[in-house]
Each structure stands twice: as structure tokens, then as C-alpha cells.
Design a binder for these strands. Structure first.
Lengths: 248, 248
DNA sequence: CGGCGGGTTTGATCTGTATCAAGGCCCTAA
DNA sequence: TTAGGGCCTTGATACAGATCAAACCCGCCG
């Protein structure tokens, strides 16, 4: 199960998701205790940069609320998003000194941080944490490979449909399903951020969103509020095997 | 250090690289002993499929010699390579039943396999293995993200240059440096495989290789033998920050 | 109320890469 | 020796998406 219901997490494990994601699955109370002792919180405003690529990064962290992105930028300014961090996702790499990517808050953001050194110590002494982190990293690697197929081989229309399906799917449980089974959600990204995610320009994103609307695949209320009347129809547009299209 | 010299590995740790990559770094003799007991070897001919996406996969493995690829294929036949496995790289995922990608031998290939169940048992009982695997997976994730930037934002010429630089770099220590500092190596991939790696068509790959040759960035002997007279010049063509261009 | 700015849409045009097609090179087998 | 088949190159053309440019929407502030 790639993503947990945030509410369930917080109910089960207190306010810090990493306790669930990284430990709780097989937790022992003294491990929790020790994590508890080294954690602290940081908040960021929408648009704020959490850390720049190349900067010293002396903590690892887990997203509590809000959304952050990992991006790479080329010298001439071309940008590619390489990670989209949702609540309970993990940032940072044990054993690395400096950040490899720009991390930016795209919404207001709260992260639960652990200073790197104590966290690494904890990791070597409590095997469950490394195992949990391994599982999470393997999930991320799978997601990255899915993303590579999208970037390398999908058309603009398929890319947009895929992104909408990903967003609809990942937090389907938080969203309203209207009586007749429509799925409704708000885009957490600007057109430009969508473009950076998909390897397109913002104009192309805008055009393809309009095209999907014109063709009745989605409906729009304002710029950000999306209604998907028929999820299967959307999945057909992604180019993916349809059976991957389960909705939790 | 992302890749180890295969010879050093085999000298140090016997004939099975995973012993080094997954364990040796902090090894204890009884762990080695137990890995030893569950390992076995499999060989494949160039072009042979190791496993199809969706097939049952009851082992994990490590490449001993040769090269394998991970690819994803869409229903209509579009293909994207999502992994390039070199000696000492790891395949398979503890905790997953079925293969997520097609695995293909692009050269003759020898893999060192471990049946999944005993390997998982070993993993839960010896923390070093999970930690080693975590490091390796994080390296792969970094590589995947680099690859995403390439697929999403680089031009065809930059993609080709990047791939050549990656190949040149990864096994620089195996290759001849001629007197005046040229780097020389053989492409392990066909034009079509390069295209699947880069999200291009084989015609575009061919044209851009010719263009780099015409512009003196590389020299060709036959179709596969590459001479890079000036590595820094090649790196300039990749679009990457130059300081990433260290040559081990 | 009016102006302003960020995010967005839409139009016109350009261009890099795909597509379609032909031919070359080299190895192997008859 | 020739024939066949991978693999690769090159040319002509088509087209998806980029680029350049203008205008829209809407919330905010003076």
C-alpha cells in the first residue's frame, strides 16, 4: 500500500507520520521513545524553498501536511520535477551530506525532522527502521520508473491524463465521490508545476487540459477544481494497461 | 562509489558480487556462510529474456558478468528502458511476488541468484543486508532521477552525449586511455536499445551519433567502438553541470 | 472604482524529432 | 560465390509540441 490515510496514521501513531511509515509496522515502544526524543517540526509557506540542491542537509524528514516537490534545474533554467512529496513521504538520505535536489513547498508545509546523526545511529541500532526505509525507497523507485515511461514515451495528452489519474488515485479516500460516482478533487499544482512534472511547457499543459475538457473526459470548475465523471474513461486516456487503474 | 571494479570484487569476496555489495562491507563470516548456502547461478544468452513483466519471480539476483536491461512496454509496443544492469547490480525486490519489468540479457549474462524466501529470512535476521540494500536502492533512485531529467528536458544531442558519458564513466577503469588521454570503449547497446534508453527513435540516435562524429566530439571505428578524444568536450555536450563530470 | 499582477488561455508560427522509405555494410549460411 | 538478414545510415516529409505574442480572469490593494 503505497500511501496511507493521513488521518488513520495520526490516530494510530500520533502526529508524526514517519513513526508509522518508518517504524510502527513492527514497532517496539523504546524505538518510538527514541524517535520521539530526536524529532522536531518545521513549517514553510507555500512557494518557500526548503533547501537548495548542493546545500548542507543535516536532517532527514517526513511530510506531515502539505506538498513539496523535488526538482532539478539545468544551467540554462530548464527544470524537471523528480519527486512529489505528499504527507507521510520521506525526504533526505541517510549517509549523504548535501541535498541532491531543490526541495520546495508548493503548499503550506509542515515537516517532521530528525537530525541526521542521531537518526543514523538509531537506524544502525534498530533494524526495523532500515527495513521500513528500504520498502519506502523501493516504492519510490517503482514510481520513478513509471514516471520514466511517462517522460520518455507518452504523448502530451497521455501525460496529462496520467497525472490527473495519479492525483485522483493517491488521495481518492479524501475526496468526494458524488452520487453517480464522479471523482472530484483540487489540483495541488500550477500549470507550470504540472509542466515541470511532465516534461512539457505550460502552454501545452493548458491546451491539453482544455482538450480533455472539450472531449468530456473531465470537467473544470475554475482553474483548479477537477471533476472526473468516469474514471475508467480517464484511465483509457493514459495509455497504461487498464488493470493498473484500480482505485484503491 | 556507485560501481566497483569487478576484479577487485571477485578477488576480495569470491565469485559472487552480491557478497561484496550486499554484505561484505560490514560482513561477519556466518552471514557469508549462509548466503553461500542459498546461492546458485544462472546463465543467459545475448538477447534472451530473463523474466517477463508480470511473471512469478521467486528469486533475487545480482549480475556477475554481462549486461541486462529492465524495460516497460505499452500495449501498442512503445518501449522505455528503465534500468541498465551492470556487473554487481541487484535485480528483484524482496517482498514482491511478480516481476514489474521485462528483464532481458543484452549480452551473454551470468547472474548469481538467491531464492527469495531464504534471502528474506536472512535479511530479517542480519541487519547489514537490509542496510546495504538500502544504500544500493538509494543509489538507483538517484540514477533514476538523473535519467528523468534526461528524458524530460534534454535535446536528442544532449541525450546521446549523456549516455556516452555515462558509459564512459562507469567503466572508465576497465578502458584504455591512450597516450594523449583519449577514452576508448565499446557500446554495449544497439542503436535501438540506445533509443529505448533515451526515449528517442533509432533513426534519431543514428543521426545524432553521426552529428557528434562530424563535429569531432567522438570518433567511430565500426559501429560500436567509440573514441572520445576529449572527455570534457563530451561532457559540455551533455547539458549537465560540468563538475558532475568527474571521471572516477 | 481602477489598476495591477500572477496564473491561465488561446492564437500563429516555427522547429526538432518522428515517420516513411530506400539503400549500405558485414557476417553467416548455402 | 551469392543470397539473406541483422544492424545501421541517410533522405524526404509530416507533425506534435515549443516558442512567441496577446489577451483574459480574478483576487487584491490603493
Amino acid at each position: 500500500m503505497a500511501h496511507h490515510d493521513l488521518q488513520a496514521v495520526t490516530q494510530e501513531c500520533g502526529d508524526c507520520p514517519i513513526r508509522h511509515r518508518a517504524v510502527c509496522a513492527r514497532c517496539e515502544s523504546d524505538e518510538l521513545q527514541r524517535l520521539e526524543q530526536i524529532k522536531y517540526y518545521r513549517s514553510y509557506q507555500a512557494g518557500q524553498t526548503v533547501i537548495w540542491s548542493g546545500d548542507k542537509m543535516d536532517f532527514v524528514a517526513s511530510v506531515v501536511t502539505g506538498i513539496a516537490t523535488l526538482t532539478q534545474t539545468m544551467e540554462d533554467g530548464r527544470r524537471q520535477m523528480v519527486g512529489l512529496l505528499l504527507p507521510s513521504d520521506f525526504v533526505g538520505r541517510p549517509g549523504r551530506q548535501t541535498a541532491a535536489y531543490d526541495v520546495t513547498a508548493t503548499t503550506d508545509l509542515v515537516m517532521c525532522c530528525f537530525r541526521k546523526k542521531p537518526f543514523e545511529d538509531l537506524m544502525t541500532s534498530t533494524p526495523h527502521i532500515a527495513q521500513r526505509l528500504l520498502e519506502m525507497t523501493l516504492d519510490e523507485l517503482d514510481a520513478a520508473r513509471e514516471w520514466m515511461l511517462l517522460l520518455g514515451r507518452k504523448t502530451a495528452r497521455e501525460k496529462i491524463a496520467s497525472l490527473l489519474a495519479i492525483i485522483a488515485r493517491r488521495d481518492a479516500h479524501l475526496k468526494l465521490k458524488s452520487a453517480k460516482g464522479s471523482i472530484v478533487f483540487d489540483l495541488p499544482l500550477t500549470r507550470e508545476e504540472m509542466a515541470d512534472y511532465l516534461g512539457l511547457t505550460l502552454e501545452t499543459v493548458s491546451r491539453q487540459v482544455s482538450a480533455l475538457k472539450r472531449d468530456g473526459v473531465i470537467e473544470l470548475e475554475g482553474k483548479r477544481h477537477i471533476i472526473v465523471p468516469n474514471f475508467d474513461r480517464l484511465v483509457e486516456e493514459t495509455g497504461d494497461d487498464s488493470d493498473g487503474g484500480f482505485l484503491v
